[in-house]
């Protein structure tokens, strides 16, 4: 328990520090940080539209952050969630547009299932390359994100194009109910929450979850006790991909109603940030995802109300993550010494 309190304290401290550095940057360009942050807060929460936009932005982040975290639990650094969101989205769009022969409830299911299947298959590639041939998954997933982006971009400007000036697909025939109009907040948020709860339970309460954690901590031990570390690694990556696929499907069915070129840019990397900041702790990740979506949706309001560019928010989050990765920062000198000694001993 003490550990939990400590982690929370650490995260809050890091947050304050990151906001502080952000304030310095705002001062540096001659604006008032307090005004900027107030505008930011208002931009995220003030009124139905803004709150709804924040919630709509939170939905995919919740899924992509957990997607990154679950892969991390198995020892993978899956930067590829973004590509999986794109491919999940395009698959959902394709099924949602073309498979109208299915009854509506089945069509919903088909959209989700298709998105999950394609995204999982995409995640399988870097996972298998890493597990069987030791190909660094950070490199492959990053590069494959670009490939995924171009594939979908080709499809919506070519074969699946709606023929409009913007590259986008025809509207899908099934959509998720938007409950806070005019914002695009939709029932997808409840699907996302349910999925995340299931994943967290799975990780902690089932033997599959145990295997994922074992493989993540120590693959050589896993193999020795009879857990196929490669297979578990790949399955965790595929699960991660599926979560990305669900996010893509919700975006297409719930937010846009069609596949919009480039729609997922930043969703994967922001999810990764949310997860990394809390060291892939599954219980904290959703809160961090929420915090980041508040920053994101508030940023526009800030840019309009004050002269502070919205890119500042990204700068703050980046500073946040950099400080958060530093394991031994914020420890009192004495404590750090003790930890260092502990390290020497095991060395």
């Amino acid at each position: 328990m003490n550990q939990t309190v400590n982690s929370i304290r650490r995260i809050l401290l890091t947050m304050v520090l990151a906001l502080g550095i952000g304030a310095l940057l705002i001062l540096a360009i001659g604006e008032n940080p307090v005004d900027a942050y107030v505008a930011l807060f208002k931009g995220a929460f003030d009124g139905k539209l803004r709150l709804g936009t924040t919630l709509a932005g939170f939905t995919p982040l919740l899924l992509t952050s957990i997607a990154f975290a679950i892969a991390a639990k198995a020892g993978a650094f899956n930067v590829g969630v973004e590509g999986e969101v794109f491919l999940g989205g395009i698959t959902a769009a394709y099924i949602g547009i073309n498979w109208t022969f299915l009854p509506r409830p089945m069509l919903y299911l088909a959209c989700f299932a298709g998105a999950m299947a394609v995204a999982a298959a995409w995640a399988f590639i870097p996972a298998a390359l890493r597990a069987y041939y030791g190909v660094n998954e950070v490199c492959t997933t990053i590069l494959m994100n670009t490939v995924a982006l171009y594939i979908t971009s080709y499809l919506v400007s070519g074969p699946m194009s709606a023929g409009t000036a913007n590259a986008q697909s025809l509207p899908v025939t099934v959509t998720l109910y938007q409950f806070m109009k005019p914002s695009s907040a939709n029932v997808g948020i409840f699907i996302a929450i349910a999925v995340v709860v299931l994943v967290i339970l799975m990780l902690n309460k089932t033997s599959w979850g145990y295997k994922i954690r074992t493989v993540g901590f120590n693959p050589s031990h896993a193999d020795y006790v009879g857990i196929n570390s490669k297979r578990v690694f790949i399955s965790a990556m595929m699960l991660s991909g599926m979560l990305g696929g669900i996010a893509g499907c919700i975006e297409v069915l719930g937010v846009h109603g069609y596949f919009l070129n480039n729609f997922a840019t930043g969703l994967g990397s922001n999810g990764m940030l949310a997860s990394l900041i809390v060291k892939n702790n599954m219980a904290f990740t959703p809160f961090m995802a929420f915090f980041l979506s508040v920053l994101k949706s508030g940023a526009m309001g800030m840019q309009q109300a004050t002269g502070v560019p919205k890119a500042l928010v990204d700068t703050i989050t980046a500073v946040f993550i950099i400080i958060a990765t530093m394991e031994t920062a914020f420890q009192f000198a004495k404590k750090r010494k003790a930890q260092k000694k502990g390290k020497e001993e095991t060395a």
């Binding site: 890119a311 993550i321 950099i322 530093m326």
Partner: peptide, 14 residues
């Protein structure tokens, strides 16, 4: 990897 990705984000944002 974590701090490296953080640096990449920072570079993009700043």
């Amino acid at each position: 990897c974590a701090i490296g990705m953080g640096i990449n984000m920072l570079a993009l944002a700043i």
